[in-house]
């Protein structure tokens, strides 16, 4: 392909990326060095915002909460998504129906899904699940206001919302695993567990990597789920980085756009670090191809 053709084909897309993503990003970076209110020009304050972020214990807590949530959810998604995908893939006539049913949580907007979820756990709004759990175990668990129970609820919600996607991608990946290979392994006398671990899983490594990639991207930016599910996230240490940004730059008439932008920049850096292995993979592969 010639340079000119490349420019014609990719140009509009690049233009949109530069105009609608890079320029706003530049503005965010600019703001991160300013003290600024909405609608009025800011004044340069150097690294003050970054200093404030790093000296605010809330920021540290938010980073730790977010990263741990991301790692746990991603691990669960990979394992549960794989198991579920294998089960679904083994179905015959029922497969499209089961797939369709399982996809439902994925197609519901997260904020809506999380609200539905909150009605299962919040006793003030019915709380059918917390009620049943209390009936069965006798334990009165404060799902909305205590750190760990609330973390369980939030993680369950995020997993609930993303598991269908993980499963779907892995089901798609399983279509590419040849029956011959499985048959060969069986003839060699491999147990079911071995068959999965040493034949199927390695052959869909790329697919699992893709699931991990998307999961990391999305869970690091958890926000919607916390709005209905963790009304006192700040006090119980369940504030995600995105929620922290929202709280300082938007909520309660808060106007600290500079600080919010500085945290944005730091969050982008964190995301890039988490994605580094994937970025290197893409770079290597594209150069090779």
């Amino acid at each position: 392909m010639r340079r000119r053709e490349f420019a014609v084909l990719a140009g509009p897309s690049i233009l949109v990326m530069v105009g609608l993503l890079v320029l706003p990003l530049v503005r965010t970076i600019e703001w991160s060095f300013q003290k600024v209110d909405y609608g009025s020009p800011g004044s340069f304050v150097g690294l003050d915002n970054y200093q404030e972020a790093f000296s605010d214990p809330r920021f540290g807590k938010a980073v730790i909460f977010t990263v741990i949530l991301t790692l746990i959810v991603t691990a669960v998604l990979l394992v549960a998504g794989y198991v579920l995908a294998v089960l679904v893939n083994g179905l015959h006539r029922a497969k499209p129906y089961v797939l369709g049913l399982l996809l439902v949580p994925y197609v519901i907007p997260q904020i809506v899904g999380a609200t539905m979820f909150s009605w299962l756990f919040n006793p003030n709004y019915g709380g059918v699940l917390s009620y049943l759990i209390e009936k069965l175990t006798g334990a009165h668990i404060l799902w909305m206001s205590e750190t760990w129970p609330n973390r369980v609820v939030v993680s369950l919600d995020v997993i609930w919302a993303m598991l269908p996607f993980a499963m779907l991608i892995i089901v798609a990946g399983l279509q590419g695993v040849s029956d011959e290979m499985i048959e060969a392994a069986r003839i060699d006398g491999a147990s079911t567990l071995r068959l999965h671990l040493s034949v199927i899983v390695p052959s869909i490594r790329g697919v699992l990597g893709f699931v991990a990639l998307i999961s990391i991207m999305d869970v690091v930016r958890t926000f919607d789920a916390l709005v209905p599910l963790s009304p006192q996230a700040v006090q119980i240490g369940n504030e995600s980085i995105m929620l922290y940004i929202y709280n300082v730059a938007f909520q309660n008439g808060g106007q600290n756009l500079g600080l919010g932008s500085a945290i944005d920049v730091l969050l982008i850096l964190l995301i890039v670090v988490l994605l580094l292995p994937f970025i290197r993979g893409v770079a290597k592969e594209t150069r090779a191809g």
Partner: peptide, 30 residues
């Protein structure tokens, strides 16, 4: 088009997929 520019674009697309909304949408608001 196997060239460095494709690599850059693809990596950029990856990172852009992962951008926090506020970093983009608050400036867009303005």
């Amino acid at each position: 088009f196997p060239s460095w520019i494709s690599v850059v674009l693809l990596v950029a697309a990856l990172v852009f997929r992962a951008l926090p909304r506020f970093a983009v949408v608050l400036p867009m608001y303005d």
